[in-house]
Design a protein around this nucleic acid. Sequence first.
DNA 1: TGCAGGCCTATTGTTGACAAAATAGCCTTG
DNA 2: CAAGGCTATTTTGTCAACAATAGGCCTGCA
Lengths: 234, 234
Amino acid sequence: MAKIVDNLWSPTTDPAPSDHRTIADRVSQQLVDAIVSGDLPQGSKISEPEVARRLGTSRGPLREAIRRLEGLRLVQRQAHVGARVITLSHRELDEVYSVREALEGMAARLAAQHMSEEEVAELGELLARHELMIEQDHDYVQAAGDYDFHYRIIRGSGNRWLIELLTGELYHLIRMYRLTATRSAPRPERALADHRRIADAIAERDGELAEMLMRRHISAARQRIAQRMPEESP
Amino acid sequence: MAKIVDNLWSPTTDPAPSDHRTIADRVSQQLVDAIVSGDLPQGSKISEPEVARRLGTSRGPLREAIRRLEGLRLVQRQAHVGARVITLSHRELDEVYSVREALEGMAARLAAQHMSEEEVAELGELLARHELMIEQDHDYVQAAGDYDFHYRIIRGSGNRWLIELLTGELYHLIRMYRLTATRSAPRPERALADHRRIADAIAERDGELAEMLMRRHISAARQRIAQRMPEESP
DNA sequence: TGCAGGCCTATTGTTGACAAAATAGCCTTG
DNA sequence: CAAGGCTATTTTGTCAACAATAGGCCTGCA
């Protein structure tokens, strides 16, 4: 299930379909996965010879992949020195969440306007399934369900650039944080209640309400993170 | 002046300071400039041998530069076929403006909270200079002044990721459009009045009002574009 | 005459070698 | 003993040649 959701959430890094994958594309995806999974920790240097050897390729495609990640803002480069995985300070993580709040709020509003009746019905069914799964509070299932819910609303906005930003760099950054920080997910019942209200607002085509509820939902997550981050490390 | 503003607005594509520029960095910037200036039109194919020759380098650095632009979403690639400059349909341009409206509105709200008194004063001085320049309605001066105003507010938000998104890919896309489409700038007096109201709201630390005014300001620009785009080309 | 199949050329993908720059360690000197 | 410079090594930047794929072209057959 996690795999499915990961694929759903990585459309911008997915290469062309079938076997039209080039080595640089594969390496690019592997690097994203490595960074997000914590295999390449924040701030770690990416040694071209070593990583190329570990990934079984030469430096050419690796360098192209690094340049792609640079465009996605997952790594920072310095000429003649090398590339390092970006480091997110707590303050910057908070800033990312602020941007996400604004954009996903917008997505919820647009989704209320543009989602088809069928998509709205599917959203309701998804929540019903989550409700059934809630007793077996498997952490990962909860997280996957959370992604799935947000992803559907983002897609429902119908705004291509909004979708690309939210499922692209912003999502990778948040995904990266999830591994390094302690779990700060809300109690599943609370998250589900939030989701239910948002879905109801969308079903009633009340964009303003949907936006407000979504912003609150994400803002709460941001505040939970801030609470659990008392120590400040510049 | 145009040069100054362009530099101000391209922090993410600026390479390391001084002569620590690598060829791939230079080529990357040249490609962005070529796309934005219309030298490489929307949808045009980027032939690696030809472009490499024209830019006086080999294919290696060029390919890295293309991969960087791919991350910035300025080009789209297809394996074994090549890279093409992205084409913005009118609908997509409208979507970009919608995202910009949300993010710059957020920037105005944050700027009202975070800008120092000195920065607020400078913003006022900037507008005073624009007011003086308004009789000599040099189109380019107006456009540069517009950029300068928006740029200062974006920077004033203090949110690094907001700044990167707005001055990075979103800005390049809008810049790209400006060249291909007919000028749809508002009358300078109207733009200046809008700017003045926004600056006043920021000076009074009224974030909500600043956000609302900024959103309206950008929304008006979006509607002007939509009006002048009756023909639909998929 | 139309279509199908295979060849052919041009372009992209990849590799390894070479050049240049930066860092680290060592030696010298005050 | 510390500080500064020099050298050596490692790493990054660049290039040109080689391999592989795609799309067009030509021919042959129905």
